[in-house]
Design a protein around this nucleic acid. Structure first.
Length: 509
RNA sequence: GAUCUCGUAGCUCAGCCGGUAGAGCACUUGACUUUUAAUCAAGGAGUCAUGGGUUCGAAUCCCAUCGAGAUCACCA
């Protein structure tokens, strides 16, 4: 243990010797928050020049002591509660009566440490230097802190000194990060606002919020490597879901005409600043709709989200240098037109060997198993994706890449699919859902052929899902949103770790 | 998985053409009854990520391992 930790444990023991419980069980009645008092405190100057305090004559607040300044027989502290900070003013004379006599000199002056949770009662006033403060009349230890927090100081101009910035420590000890770097709390508050706004919007549309299995015997609905686990009683392999799509569609078969789920997904793949092994998706499915309807709904929903999060209610979000406008309509661009626009290639008429030689020329990595559809996807990823800064619906994908999507109503070889790109990143993926069970079976069989060729991410045949489709699924539109990526965009963050409370980390030694 | 950079006191960092460690804040003791990055005086605190090597001698040079970040690959 470090010197400071040992000293804090000694303080803890001494408090107990004084009969002060450092971890009292009874509740502490909080009647006010720091931010309300600093914002609303009022006083008047009387004719004789004395001050008359107009409100907060008796308040009770609780939080952590984050700074302490002794000034002779007086003391100033900064108390941090969930809403902000307020200065406390304590005078020795106020604590000299009766049994409480040792409280100031011993307990408060010597045994209180930065980071301790305390409760105080007193009245608000304004100090000589103009700061709204609490003149403390009663002081109670609520929880002792046995480790020193990093001390971050800010001067009058707002310059920050000794900021707690090491990303490893911040992510491993988010409790320290958010205690000390309180501005990061806003990211998570905005994230929750994002989810709530979406939930309210879908509820207003009449959709039903549902929960579907995380442990799945067949990992379906997306192309990704899964986490595997084992159920002892059933003695069977189970997968953590990589998607919930096939289960939500079963519920459409069941007769719910609109369902949604905010779902943690798990994918056993690389980690970087936009990927965490577990992440959150919103998927929703609505019967009797198609992907055109879904584009309209997406525009409306994201505009609502933007306005809910934007401080001034605007419909934009700032990501680095880019101001992103979330009010629709968004540009709708076919996959083929997009590639033509940014490369001059006509992929529709080109054959596989032409695409291959283009990729070779542009140093786009390939392998022999890639078919034309996959090559198109690679070219798109390398040449187009990064340019799509303002929200753009990329529509009408080649069928081979989209085994769960309905064939295009008028364009042979394509499917009714769109992905929404914002700031050069995919944030949503939507289809007119394939509901023809015979077509769906053929698509699964094609996936099996890809798997046999060595494609690790090809989808598995799901006989139960096919059985459900055979009973009949109405025409349906469905979409999945990457909530973490949206959260990054709406909070201006470039790393997914900044929008996850507890990003995945390697174990500490 | 590959490459590059980084890991020194509780925090933020300096020291790195080799001679067993420094600063600010935090901490301890003292002074100060309206201070606020409080101030003033004195003091304590480190297995320099871990293990090995080179050397008379390693925080410093070399190798390996662990952890982190960035870029790339896979993916959302």
């Amino acid at each position: 243990m470090t010197e400071q930790e040992l000293l804090r444990r000694e303080s803890l023991a001494k408090l107990r010797e004084l009969g002060i419980d450092p971890y009292p069980a009874e509740m502490f009645d909080v009647t006010a928050f720091s931010s309300d008092i600093t914002a609303n405190y009022q006083e008047e100057i009387l004719e004789d020049g004395t001050k008359n305090r107009l409100n907060y004559h008796a308040v009770s607040l609780a939080g952590r002591i984050m700074a302490s300044r002794e000034a002779g027989k007086a003391m100033f502290m900064n108390l941090q509660d969930a809403h902000g900070r307020i200065q406390l003013y304590l005078r020795r004379d106020d604590f000299l009566q009766g049994e409480e006599a040792p409280l100031f000199d011993l307990a408060i002056k010597k045994l209180l440490d930065l980071g301790d949770y305390v409760g105080v009662k007193g009245f608000a006033f304004r100090t000589k230097t103009g700061e709204v403060s609490i003149h403390v009349q009663e002081f109670k230890f609520l929880a002792k802190s046995l480790r020193p927090l990093p001390v971050v100081k800010k001067d009058a101009d707002g310059n920050i000194y000794d900021a707690f910035t090491d990303p490893e420590l911040r992510y491993r000890m988010r409790y320290v990060d958010l205690t000390v770097n309180t501005e990061f709390r806003q990211i998570f508050i905005k994230r929750t606002k994002l989810i709530k706004t979406m939930r309210n919007y879908l509820d207003d549309l009449g959709l039903l919020e549902v929960e579907t299995p995380i442990l799945q015997p067949i990992h379906g609905g997306a192309a990704a490597r899964p986490f595997t686990t084992h159920h002892n009683t059933l003695d069977m392999k189970l997968y953590l879901r990589i998607a919930n799509e096939l289960y939500l569609k079963r519920l459409i078969v069941a007769g719910f005409d609109g369902v949604y789920e905010f779902a943690k997904m798990f994918r056993n793949e690389g980690m970087d600043r936009t990927h965490n092994p577990e992440f959150t998706a919103l998927e929703f499915y609505v019967a009797y709709k198609d992907y055109n309807w879904m584009m309209d709904i997406t525009e409306k929903m994201l505009e609502k989200v933007a306005r809910a999060i934007h401080e001034a209610g605007g419909s934009t979000a700032q990501v680095g240098e880019n101001t992103i406008e979330f009010a629709g309509p968004y540009r709708r661009l076919t996959m083929f037109d997009a590639i033509h626009e940014y490369t001059g290639l006509n992929v529709e008429s080109a054959d596989e060997s032409e695409l291959r030689s283009y990729c070779k020329k542009e140093h786009i990595e390939l392998d022999a198993t890639m078919g034309k559809a996959k090559l198109i996807d690679e070219i798109f990823g390398a040449k187009v994706e990064g340019h799509l800064i303002q929200p753009t619906f990329l529509i009408d994908y080649p069928m081979e890449m989209s085994p769960l999507t309905k064939k295009h109503r008028s364009k042979p070889g394509l499917v009714e699919r769109f992905e929404l790109f914002v700031n050069g990143k995919e944030v949503a993926n939507a289809y007119s859902e394939l509901n023809d069970p015979i077509d769906q079976r053929e698509r699964f069989e094609e996936q099996l052929r890809l798997a046999a060729r060595g494609d690790e991410e090809a989808m598995a045949m799901d006989e139960d899902f096919l059985r459900a489709l055979e009973y009949g699924m109405p025409p349906t539109a469905g979409i999945g949103f990457g909530i973490d990526r949206l959260a990054m965009m709406f909070t201006g963050q470039v790393s997914i770790q900044e929008v996850l409370f507890f990003p995945q980390m390697r174990p500490e030694v």
